[in-house]
């Protein structure tokens, strides 16, 4: 399930991976850095904030200046400026992916409607259970096919455009490697998850994370997972359907990361919670409210704080140790 990126900086795995709740109003990053024994400099990634990438004064203050912003968004803009062919190909690919997402969403909405209609029918319990499983299987198949199509599109892009071998990208990756080599940790903030994911992939941040402690929250945490799931139970246009966006970096596997459940999830809606848990099983759906923290290091998982797990019976509970152990993290 590893996201396919062209890596020229070599492999290697992070020393530890720590997922955090939202940092905007009640930041806990500094405590996490301290608890994971990171004393050196932190490379920050705020590319999810897009044009506001360098509006990071609060983050710098929170880290007491022990950080350097990798400016991935600005670097990508510089790459596109220097390499118009790559820029055009990137735009074309993004348009293709948007269209792909739209078609997937059309099918998905019908599949979810079908699931709802069948679940409302009166029928023998055994039959309903079987039909319910069939409904969820149909949704899972759609999710899987969508992922495969996105992966195929990306592979085609990589094979034809070869971004990792283009001079502008090579130059930026080398600069980034030099900066990150001076750092002990990488902190990936939230923001626009698709934009962030593209920049992380373009500059092969997964490879640069080797032997670093990686901290991530919100969109940053989602991007580390093997599969990025967009979700919002109450968007303005009506009940929202969670949808698979694409593969993530794959540093964290067997988990779907759901930040800001306070605003985005209707955790009291058992049918929605159950469907989410069943749809992505065996992956664990973990919700990270503000102040939540869960980490894995070479020494094993560290005790989670405030992390919730969605269960297939429609309830949720704090993340249990056996579930945390089942979530795999790429570590040396």
């Amino acid at each position: 399930m590893k996201r396919r990126t062209e890596s020229v900086t070599g492999g290697g795995a992070p020393r530890a991976v720590v997922l955090l709740g939202a940092q905007r109003f009640d930041p806990t990053l500094r405590d996490a850095i301290s608890d994971f024994g990171v004393k050196g400099k932190i490379a920050t990634i705020t590319a999810g904030w897009q044009e506001r990438e360098t509006d990071d004064a609060d983050l710098v203050e929170h880290l007491e200046g022990r950080c350097v912003n990798l400016r991935l968004h600005a670097r990508a803009e510089e790459v596109f400026k220097a390499d118009p062919e790559l820029h055009e190909a990137h735009r074309t690919r993004q348009a293709l992916l948007r269209q792909r997402q739209d078609f997937y969403r059309i099918r998905l909405e019908h599949a979810l409607d079908t699931e709802l209609v069948i679940s409302q029918r009166a029928a023998p319990e055994a039959m309903l259970e079987e039909e319910e499983r069939a409904s969820v299987d149909a949704i899972r198949e759609l999710d899987q096919r969508h992922l495969e199509r996105c992966e195929r599109d990306r592979r085609q892009f990589d094979d034809t455009i070869r971004p990792a071998r283009r001079a502008a990208v090579v130059r930026q990756r080398a600069e980034l490697a030099a900066i990150v080599s001076e750092c002990e940790g990488i902190a990936i903030a939230g923001g626009h998850v698709a934009s962030l994911l593209n920049r992380l992939a373009l500059f092969d941040i997964g490879a640069l994370a080797a032997n670093k402690v990686v901290f991530a929250w919100c969109a940053g945490a989602m991007a580390l997972a093997e599969r990025v799931v967009l979700f919002h139970d109450s968007p303005p246009q009506g009940p929202g359907a969670a949808e698979v966006l694409d593969r993530g970096l794959g540093l964290v596997t067997n988990a779907v990361v759901l930040p800001q459940p306070e605003f985005r999830l209707r955790l009291d809606d058992r049918a929605r919670v159950a469907l989410m848990a069943r749809r992505f099983a065996p992956a664990h759906c973990i919700a990270l409210p503000a102040r939540a923290r869960v980490g894995w290091s070479r020494g094993g998982p560290s005790a989670p704080y405030g992390v919730l797990e969605l269960r297939d019976d429609g309830t949720y509970q704090t993340l249990q140790s056996h579930s945390q152990a089942a979530i795999k993290v790429r570590l040396p």
Partner: peptide, 18 residues
């Protein structure tokens, strides 16, 4: 307007987590 416009042109709310 909100329901109509956001259904026809969904904003980035599904993409932004910060």
């Amino acid at each position: 307007l909100r329901e109509g416009m956001s259904w026809l042109f969904p904003g980035p709310i599904m993409f932004i987590y910060e």
